[in-house]
């Protein structure tokens, strides 16, 4: 396998990314401007002062042609200006979103690590116990978690751990400062319920994939050879089985990364976490045009990047993907 084929492939994929983002931004912008609702009217409330409403619309450029508005907004974005919020009157969108991104990123990262740190051993364990009751029990259990919607899971967790056992707060976000500049909300007990609600349903996906991969690898000749050599079973599993079984799991991680930036609307709203998900609800309700655009662009970019990472990983792992792409090009 040469590396020569890999770089052109990555380059081709990279060229698609701006086009995808351009289309996403254009559609989102058009939906906002041509869809129902008007942020200025929402702000003004019931007191009517048509003159000032017009003044605000003029100042914010809302009276201009759609393409002029779009062009101006995107030019701003390319210069690092995500626009101005209506919901938080006059504040730059970036100032509104930045702390929320950090919040969402933190707890999702921990959840992501937990999902893989617990899901992989669970999958391996299940695979090694294929044929006994343990395998279907573990997988069934995890599937049960995955089947509980967050709208049910969260209140139950709150009821059990906060109201009955009194171990945990029912939610909220209590950041602590570390080294004088790093603000972490994941160090407080408030974060346990959100983490459970995020991790438990995610385990099944990882565990099942790992289980299937491990079972496949266990049937390979080289595993039989390793066992025949008299190697310790632990060494067989860690050195020979896992190394080969985990490659596809890495690609799953790519998509899980999207969650780091997009947040969960239900989870954040129910638990009072000031992240991107709860802002999305607010922004849509207030028709916070620039805020909505920023969220769409961020999530879109995260998705494009995740896709890219996954594709590249696949190409790296499996040269056939790259060759196929070249054949079609």
């Amino acid at each position: 396998m040469t590396r020569a084929g890999l770089w052109p492939y990555i380059l081709r994929r990279l060229l698609w990314a701006p086009l995808v983002l351009f289309l996403v931004s254009l559609i989102a912008f058009a939906l906002g401007r041509f869809g129902p609702g008007d942020p200025v009217r929402v702000l003004a409330g019931q007191h009517r002062d048509p003159e000032v409403i017009e003044e605000i619309r003029r100042e914010r450029g809302l009276d201009e042609n759609f393409f002029v508005q779009y062009g101006r907004y995107m030019a701003g974005v390319l210069h690092g200006d995500l626009g101005t919020s209506f919901r938080y009157q006059g504040l730059p969108v970036w100032e509104v979103i930045k702390p929320r991104l950090w919040v969402t990123f933190q707890y999702n990262l921990v959840a992501l690590v937990l999902v893989f740190a617990l899901g992989i051993p669970a999958g391996v364990w299940a695979a090694l116990h294929q044929g006994s009751w343990r395998d279907p029990f573990v997988i069934g259990l995890l599937l049960a978690f995955a089947a509980i919607p967050v709208l049910v899971m969260v209140p139950v967790l709150q009821f059990v751990f906060a109201l009955k056992l009194r171990w945990l707060p029912v939610g909220g976000w209590e950041p602590r400062e570390l080294f004088g500049f790093l603000e972490l909300g994941i160090l407080s007990k408030n974060i346990v319920i959100p983490l459970l609600a995020l991790t438990l349903p995610g385990l099944a996906g990882v565990a099942r994939l790992v289980r299937a991969q491990v079972l496949e690898v266990l049937g390979e000749d080289y595993v039989r050879t390793a066992r025949a050599k008299g190697l310790d079973e632990f060494v067989v599993v860690t050195r020979h089985v896992l190394r080969n079984a985990l490659l596809p799991v890495a690609t799953l991680m790519g998509f899980a990364l999207v969650g780091l930036l997009s947040g969960s609307i239900f989870l954040e709203t129910l638990l009072g976490i000031p992240g991107i998900g709860s802002y999305a609800v607010e922004a849509v309700n207030a028709r916070d045009y620039d805020g909505i655009m920023a969220l769409v662009l961020l999530t879109g970019a995260a998705f494009v990047v995740a896709n890219l990472v996954v594709d590249v990983l696949y190409a790296f792992i499996d040269p056939r993907v790259r060759l196929g792409a070249e054949a079609h090009a």
């Binding site: 919607p149 751990f161 969650g259």
Partner: peptide, 22 residues
């Protein structure tokens, strides 16, 4: 994270959560 809709009895859940919490 993937969160799928569905339902499931709660009693089992409570016991299992303890393990997950630990």
């Amino acid at each position: 994270m993937v969160i799928r809709p569905g339902t499931r009895p709660l009693v089992l859940l409570a016991a299992l959560l303890l393990a997950a919490l630990a």
